[in-house]
Amino acid sequence: MPLFKTIKPNNHTTIYVWKIEESFDTLSKDMLLTERSKNRIQSMKSKLHQRGFLSVRHLLKEAGYSDFDLYYNGNGKPHLKDEKHISITHSFTFSAIIISDIEVGIDIEKNREKIRIIQNKFVNFERGFIHQDDDYIQQLTVIWGAKESLYKIYPHGGLTFKNDIDIDSFQISDKKTTGFIKVKGWNKHYNIYFEQLENFTLVYALDPTNND
């Protein structure tokens, strides 16, 4: 399938979303990859992960880049050679990238009952506002996705979802909230936006200091 959706949160940020319906062979056809990427694909045991990886390279192409424009730092954080900020995500049959002049993070997650089981690993401050009359699974998925997005923004690694990142109160109908990374030397708030794509939750975080 071609590009599923494009989102423009502001004048200098674009999100590209791909719905992964193609075979591995279709996705890999005429796709130029670095040796690092070729090795990564070969190391993946799951065809689904391989297809997700390749779909991200198609998204890069949609944004005017190639796999050769992408590199990773020592903490595994992706960067673009032109110094624009980038964040990457894929889950089952969706992938997405966000590219911006400002700090950004993105996550997409399938809405699954499983998140109830693991909620104690990442929900802390948020316990005080989760609404029983709202969609509980979606709320938990937004919280997870928001924390994942902020984790991807923080350049030094080592954050814990439960203790180092807080997400402020929201309801699903709000489609936005704020989040806070609360570690020494990095006490910053970020704007959080979220929406449903079929049975998936897309969440992204933006630095609010230049968010017009």
Rank of each mutant, 00 (worst) to 15 (best):
S95M: 06
F4T: 01
L80V: 09
V203T: 15
D174Q: 03
Y204C: 03
L202D: 04
S100P: 10
D69C: 05
M44Q: 04
K147P: 01
W144Q: 02
V183I: 14
I97D: 10
M31R: 07
I117T: 15
F53I: 03
G179K: 13
K182P: 05
G128W: 02
L80H: 04
D107I: 07
A146F: 03
T178A: 12
I167P: 07
K114F: 01
A96I: 08
E83I: 05
N191C: 09
Q50F: 09
I15V: 15
L197Q: 10
V183R: 05
I118W: 03
S55F: 02
L54T: 03
N191Y: 06
S169N: 12
E62R: 03
K176G: 00
N39H: 07
R127V: 09
H189S: 11
H189R: 13
N73G: 13
Q42T: 10
E21A: 11
T34L: 06
R57V: 04
L159P: 01
K45V: 02
L33H: 05
E22L: 08
S149Y: 08
I172G: 08
K38R: 14
A205C: 09
I172E: 08
R36T: 12
G128R: 14
P9K: 12
T13A: 09
L59R: 00
I106Y: 06
Q138N: 12
E198S: 12
M1S: 13
W144M: 02
K176Q: 13
M1N: 11
N10H: 15
T6Y: 00
W18V: 08
D207G: 06
Y65F: 14
L60E: 07
T201V: 10
G74Q: 15
A205M: 08
R127P: 00
I143T: 03
I167E: 11
D107P: 02
D166W: 08
T34F: 06
N210Q: 14
E113I: 01
E126D: 05
D134K: 04
L70E: 08
I153M: 10
S46N: 07
I181H: 06
K175M: 10
H189F: 07
T93F: 06
F122Q: 01
K188V: 04
D133I: 01
L197K: 08
V56F: 05
K47H: 06
V56P: 06
